[in-house]
């Protein structure tokens, strides 16, 4: 019993030390996401059944399951700290998820557990927002044009595929994460995780539908470490 108490006290002290040390640090992890192999060919989207959306796209658009840039860079990869950083309370600012031209903007949306998610419909047509959650509870709501935004929250970390059943080409991802240290790679494949206190971290890079890579990085003081991920892509 006493041994257990001592152990618990030690644990509490450790936790307190970690918490006090977890203020905004000055370490930074940056890097580039690239790919190897052949990315799946993106298919053109036929929106002729939804003229109000089709007219918003003078040049035909394609699916976005793999978005690449010059120099084999890969967009829409969510990079986050999966181990080494404490869980954080959600920021008060909501994140926005828009339906515009029968597409999701952004295609990949990262946010924190219990953070407010604001879903808006900018189109002249009804959408149904159907996030196919497996760990969190799945729901499915209709949002006709001109109706107020849908406010939602997720309390467990999960990568959730989002779709609209009325417009089967609409596809997106909610990356629900436990802390604020995350980044989504831009069109040049770049990502940046600033304000890291010293420590050992496990960095995870995730690409839809379920490709994941991890690397361990140690930050000591105000340094900038460069980490790169190379995803192996298959055409099918």
């Amino acid at each position: 019993m006493t041994l257990k108490h001592v152990f618990l006290a030690a644990l509490a002290t450790l936790a307190a030390v970690t918490l006090t040390a977890a203020g905004p640090g000055s370490g930074t992890i940056t890097g580039k996401i690239t790919y190897d192999g052949t990315p799946a060919k993106q298919k053109p989207i036929d929106m002729s059944k939804e003229p109000s959306c089709a007219s918003q796209h003078p040049t035909p658009i394609t699916t976005e399951t793999v978005v690449t840039g010059p120099g084999n860079t890969l967009e829409n990869v969510v990079v986050y700290i999966s181990a080494g950083a404490p869980d954080e309370a959600a920021p008060s600012a909501p994140v926005n998820f828009d339906q515009k031209g029968c597409q999701y903007v952004p295609h990949m949306l990262a946010f924190q557990t219990n953070q407010e998610l604001k879903i808006s419909n900018d189109d002249q047509t009804s959408h149904n927002i159907h996030p196919l959650a497996k760990i969190n509870q799945e729901w499915n709501k209709s949002q006709p044009p001109g109706t107020p935004p849908i406010i939602a929250k997720y309390d467990k970390a999960e990568m959730i595929h989002v779709k609209c059943n009325i417009h089967p080409w609409m596809s997106g991802t909610f990356a629900v994460l436990k802390n604020s240290h995350y980044s989504v790679s831009d069109k040049d494949g770049n990502f940046k995780l600033p304000n890291l206190p010293p420590g050992k971290y496990t960095i995870t890079a995730w690409h839809e539908p379920d490709q994941e890579m991890t690397q361990d990085v140690e930050i000591s003081g105000s340094e900038t470490k460069t980490v790169s991920f190379v995803f192996k892509l298959k055409p099918y």
Binding site: K141, Q143, T147
Partner: peptide, 13 residues
């Protein structure tokens, strides 16, 4: 709504 199917809830609208 019928959860698990494409049929959404219209309760908010």
């Amino acid at each position: 709504g019928l959860d698990g199917t494409p049929m959404p809830s219209f309760a908010d609208v």
